[in-house]
């Protein structure tokens, strides 16, 4: 497994696409610096105001979308010039290839989350927020957002293996991500929509007594359930795929 992962990382690291990891955190930084809620008057903690506005765009759109782009990238060079048949004719199992690509992807998403954490901190420093950095809340948001993308990464990897074109898996991703803007406002559907989970689990206004701001059963059923479904679907599809 380690040799396959090292080969996967080698191929990806040479692709210069890693700059895309900066897009989400940069957007977050920009929104954090421009957001101005002074007129709310006597807001609770300035960090909260920043976090709420930054998370809205980042967790709702950029986190799920860029996750999908990354998944497409790790499959793109396999699709381009017969990479799959060369790779899969090597002494390895398809399962290990699938898991290696998946682990690589979620590690990259984690890096992106940590860069976003840096953005949050930077916004505070630049704006000179006097209160201490609320790490005990922010880490939940960062880590929770990562956990919430685990099923989305699995589905995007499946779609990226399935479609040779770069655009098709991206379209699938957009189709599911855009309705999130409406869904998160719905108390009935919001908790059950997998693409709404990154936002819900990064939303610091949620119930702070729950781990990751959402109830445990919602985490297990929606995030865990969709993860099992998407991961198993992609894994089994890849086993049978003729290349």
């Amino acid at each position: 497994m380690l040799p396959i992962m090292s080969s996967e990382w080698y191929k990806l690291s040479k692709s210069r696409i890693l700059w895309i990891l900066l897009v989400g955190p940069m957007v977050g930084l920009f929104i954090g610096l421009t957001a101005n809620f002074d007129n709310l008057g006597g807001g609770p903690n300035e960090w909260y105001v920043k976090l709420l506005s930054m998370n809205l765009t980042y967790a709702l759109l950029f986190l799920p979308l860029i996750t999908g782009v990354l998944a497409s990238v790790v499959c793109r060079y396999e699709h381009q010039e017969g990479g799959w048949k060369q790779l899969l004719a090597m002494p390895l199992t398809r399962g290990k290839v699938f898991i290696s690509k998946y682990i690589l992807l979620i590690a990259l998403v984690m890096v992106m989350q940590l860069l976003y954490l840096g953005s949050i901190y930077l916004v505070g420093v630049i704006d000179g927020i006097p209160e201490p950095f609320p790490l005990n809340i922010v880490w939940k948001s960062i880590f929770g957002g990562w956990v919430a993308t685990l099923p989305l990464v699995a589905l995007q990897l499946w779609m990226s293996i399935l479609f040779k074109s770069f655009a098709a898996p991206f379209a699938v991703n957009v189709i599911f991500t855009l309705p999130t803007i409406l869904v998160v406002n719905s108390e009935r559907f919001g908790p059950y929509y997998p693409w709404a989970q990154p936002f819900s689990m990064m939303y610091i206004g949620g119930n702070t007594e729950d781990i990751f701001f959402v109830p445990w059963d919602q985490l297990l059923i929606v995030v865990g359930g969709s993860f099992l479904l998407f991961f198993a679907g992609g894994y089994l599809y890849f086993q049978r795929k003729a290349v």
């Binding site: 191929k11 040479k14 692709s15 210069r16 060079y77 381009q80 010039e81 017969g82 990479g83 048949k85 060369q86 004719a89």
Partner: peptide
């Protein structure tokens, strides 16, 4: 070597 040669174009 199956059909057309396989390679990673960015490498």
């Amino acid at each position: 070597l199956v059909e057309n040669p396989s390679y990673y174009p960015h490498l």
